[in-house]
């Protein structure tokens, strides 16, 4: 059970609620103070720190999110087969338990750090911060962060990445962007995966999935691909190359970027 959503507040927790005692009687005034801070500002501070680490070493950081089993690790394996070792890559894996995914990456000859979260259903900036201490950032071009398989929670936690990629496999249904608006709005790129299975499915239409995505006011590219059969992989690699070029440009200009949706949110709302 998730240990952070509050769903596990029970009668046995009540002993934590007890009033403190006051020893002094003081003359008191009540004041209203305007704050206007984001609720996740502590996570966000650590995330900014992580982003600075990445930028200082010229590393492009990409966060992959999806339901469990959508093909994040398979996509990374197919990608590493092409780009490594010409591009120097490392992967931070997030799972509740096991090192399975990190081991799959290591079999490609690429450094992988496995974060096992225990009960936490998403990665947060503190976990990434700790992982960064074990990575030789000065020797890397790209760090992929493979988030915990979960279509809800990871979308809300800035890790310090530059870009979010959300995967949706064809067996999950083309209405998922409508059902999970926060996750799909958070994406800078949406990948429809496992297209090799389309011929056995009668209920997934890529154009419908794209329409549902556009209904979220998302303007990002949508690429349909199959890691197994290498379809659409070159479009994904082109996007990666374009992102690296943009990263190099930003580093020259001394600027950075966050996933698009976070930039919007900050610009409009919080005074961070």
């Amino acid at each position: 059970m998730c240990d952070t959503c509050g769903c596990n507040i029970t009668a046995s927790n009540q002993h934590l609620i007890k009033p403190g005692g006051k020893l002094h009687a003081v003359k008191q005034t009540t004041t209203a103070v305007t704050i206007l801070q984001g609720l996740l500002s502590e996570n966000d501070q650590t995330a900014r720190h992580n982003r600075q680490h990445f930028d200082r070493h010229g590393v492009l950081a990409i966060n992959l999110m999806s339901s469990p089993g959508s093909g994040k690790t398979s996509l990374l394996e197919a990608t590493l087969d092409v780009i490594s070792p010409d591009l120097r890559v490392a992967v931070i894996e997030g799972d509740l338990e096991t090192e399975n995914d990190a081991e799959r990456i290591r079999r490609k000859g690429v450094t992988a750090i496995q974060i096992t979260t225990g009960n936490a259903c998403h990665l947060d900036a503190h976990m990434i911060h700790d992982a960064l201490h074990s990575l030789p950032l000065e020797e890397l071009d790209i760090v992929f962060i493979e988030n915990v398989g979960n279509l809800v929670c990871p979308a809300s936690f800035d890790l310090g990445q530059h870009l979010n990629v959300t995967l949706l496999s064809v067996t999950e249904g083309d209405d998922k962007p409508s059902k999970y608006p926060v996750m799909f709005r958070a994406a800078d790129l949406v990948l429809i995966t496992k297209t090799d299975l389309l011929h056995v499915l009668d209920d997934f239409d890529v154009q419908t999935a794209e329409k549902n995505l556009r209904n979220l006011a998302s303007q990002v590219p949508l690429i349909a691909l199959s890691s197994r059969q290498q379809h659409g992989i070159s479009e994904w690699l082109d996007w990666l190359e374009h992102q690296q070029d943009e990263q190099l440009q930003r580093l020259k200009n001394g600027t950075t970027r966050q996933p698009t949706i976070q930039q919007d949110g900050q610009r409009l709302h919080a005074d961070l």
Binding site: A25, V26, Q28, Q37, H269
Partner: peptide, 25 residues
């Protein structure tokens, strides 16, 4: 562009300040 509806903000608080005078019990 969303201009309202994705906020997650602590807007303000009301708090009780200690004043200059203190009395002890």
């Amino acid at each position: 562009r969303v201009i309202s509806g994705d906020e997650m903000l602590l807007n303000s608080v009301e708090l009780t300040k200690r004043s200059e005078e203190m009395s002890y019990v």
